[in-house]
Structure formats: C-alpha cells, structure tokens
C-alpha cells in the first residue's frame, strides 16, 4: 500500500482538517469531522481504491479511532493475501 494513497483517501473524509494541516497519527478522527456516516464512506472508498477488504474482526470503533489505528488495519488487510501466497 502506498502511504500517500491511504492519506489522500483518509483526508478526503475529514472535513474539519485544512488541506495543508498535518494529521497527527494518534489524534481522534472524530475531532476532524469523521462521523458515523463519513466513516462508512471512508470504509468503502479505502476498500475500493486500495483494493483491500477489511476483515470482520476489524469492524470495531478502535479501528476507525485514529489515523494510525486505521492505517494499521488497512496494512494488515493488504498483507494477508500476499502471506498466503508465499
């Protein structure tokens, strides 16, 4: 996964984050305007655009809590098929 791809999808859904502002990895995404509806849009866009599928057990509030927790979840989802192939 390209980090900047993840970032650009994520930032698109944070309406309270100015374009040039930095996004701290541990800051709650809620603070930047990620409500439940936006989080659903974000989930679908991440899966579509990064070609990943988040497994069921990652559908928790913790996964969508911060940029870092979400990046980790998406990273795991990307790595999984590759690990199976090897």
């Amino acid at each position: 996964m390209e980090d900047n791809e993840f970032d650009s999808v994520l930032r698109r859904h944070l309406k309270n984050l100015p374009e040039d502002a930095e996004l701290p990895g541990d800051a709650p995404l809620k603070k930047y305007g990620l409500d439940s509806m936006q989080a659903v849009e974000l989930l679908f866009d991440l899966e579509d655009e990064l070609g990943v599928v988040l497994p069921d057990e990652m559908m928790t509030g913790d996964t969508f809590a911060t940029a870092e927790s979400l990046r980790r979840a998406v990273g795991t989802a990307v790595d999984e098929p590759a690990a199976e192939m090897s």
Binding site: D35, S36, V40, L43, M59, T63, F64
Partner: peptide, 8 residues
C-alpha cells in the same frame, strides 16, 4: 452514534 457506522 459510534455504532451507526462501519461497526453497525
């Protein structure tokens, strides 16, 4: 509201 999102 947190339950109304991806975790619903």
């Amino acid at each position: 509201d947190g339950d109304a999102g991806p975790t619903l």
